[in-house]
Design a protein around this nucleic acid. Structure first.
Lengths: 217, 217
DNA sequence: ATATTGGCTATTGGATCCAATTTGTATCGT
DNA sequence: ACGATACAAATTGGATCCAATAGCCAATAT
């Protein structure tokens, strides 16, 4: 008998470390844990009903991607980003994301475009900040992943983990959300048209606009 | 009485996890551990005279930066990069490194240039592959770090960790080494002249040349 | 009053021990 | 001989336990 697997069936069961890592990452990215907050191993272990071992591995991984800093025998603390570091992140994002979509456009199938469209609409409908951030990332990364560019998406993911925290405050005030929706629609159009250069330019402007609305100037 | 501290005194003592992480990272980057090789926790723990705990944290961090892949209850294995992934890495390197130096040139003090010059000469003199790789990275990263661009250097470090492995075979054959030395000298000249655009162009060509000499075409 | 010093406590770093799972292998029935 | 199944070995995942250390606070000397 031949078996058919849903893609979700292929997902190996996650280890405790993975679960803790993902929860902490999300908490930091969404701003639930604010800058400088201490991550107490025992406390976290208790919250997840596990021992400190998987917690320590999770923190180790968070440190590796720059979300927390640890001081020996003192503990781990949510990284406090300076203004110049935030500028650097956005400069990198503009550079890498625009190039990522440039290379992705030629590989965009109708399935990819449909998935992006779905994320786009979900983002437009979203009201909670956590949903904004999640759907926004899903929209962009769906497009970037079109050609299976794992490295690009990996770098971008790391950068987004560092900068999404600020997106929350940003989208909460003013018409930033509807502006983003409009820009996404425009970007999607360029992708459908197969215009890689236009898509790259729009992405560049999109990221630079986010940077300006956050830092001014 | 006033005391003066050397900067080396401020370096915090490294934990066992850090030591194991660094040693494994180096072993993979230098190619001592070849693609697909298994990282046995017990074996590594024995080699460093520590328990498996710091080994597991080190492996966790290695996985985070893409140097190893782990399969549940099977173990961790040195990541096997496909040709398309290698192409992606070099494309990203060319993009990010050229922009990094573009932004770094205006901040290059004579101290930075002197440090780069020292690394340049050490690279020229080096004969062992491990030294080539180390001094080569030191040369480039010294320049990239001029403006204190930690994020750029972080991303570049991650990419170099993935691609340096191939540099070894590359420099071993032919006149690749002397070609690199010449290109470094030229790059250093552009930096001294404060010509950011030229430095960026030279870096772009330098990386693309490395890619071609590795993958052909 | 202030600087110094000697414990005390909270918290992390690391070791040892146990459980879960994968995989190879031998056995058994046909 | 061949496939299915039960068992054994190797290895990782996680829990519990002990050691080391940074920071705090009181006690003390000047």
């Amino acid at each position: 008998m031949a078996l058919k697997f849903e893609s979700s069936d292929l997902s190996k069961t996650k280890s405790a470390t993975d679960i803790v890592f993902d929860a902490l990452r999300r908490a930091i990215v969404l701003g639930d844990l604010e800058q400088g907050a201490a991550l107490r191993q025992e406390e976290i272990a208790g919250a997840f009903n596990v021992s400190r071992i998987p917690v320590r591995e999770a923190i180790s991984r968070l440190e590796q991607i720059g979300l927390v800093e640890t001081r020996r025998h003192r503990g781990a603390f949510v990284t406090d980003l300076s203004v110049s570091e935030i500028e650097e992140i956005f400069r990198l994002r503009a550079l890498v994301e625009s190039d990522a979509i440039r290379h992705a456009v030629p590989h965009m199938t109708s399935a990819v475009l449909a998935a992006a469209e779905a994320a786009h609409q979900a983002f437009a409908r979203a009201t909670a900040p956590a949903d904004w951030i999640g759907e926004n990332r899903r929209f962009h990364c769906t497009l970037y992943s079109a050609g299976g560019q794992r490295l690009y998406v990996g770098v971008i993911d790391t950068l987004l983990n560092l900068s999404d925290r600020h997106l929350r405050a940003q989208l909460s005030l003013g018409e930033a959300h509807s502006k983003a929706v409009a820009e996404h629609a425009e970007l999607l159009l360029a992708c459908r048209a197969g215009d890689a250069e236009l898509a790259a330019t729009l992405t560049l402007r999109h990221v630079e606009g986010a940077k300006r609305s956050l830092l001014g100037g």
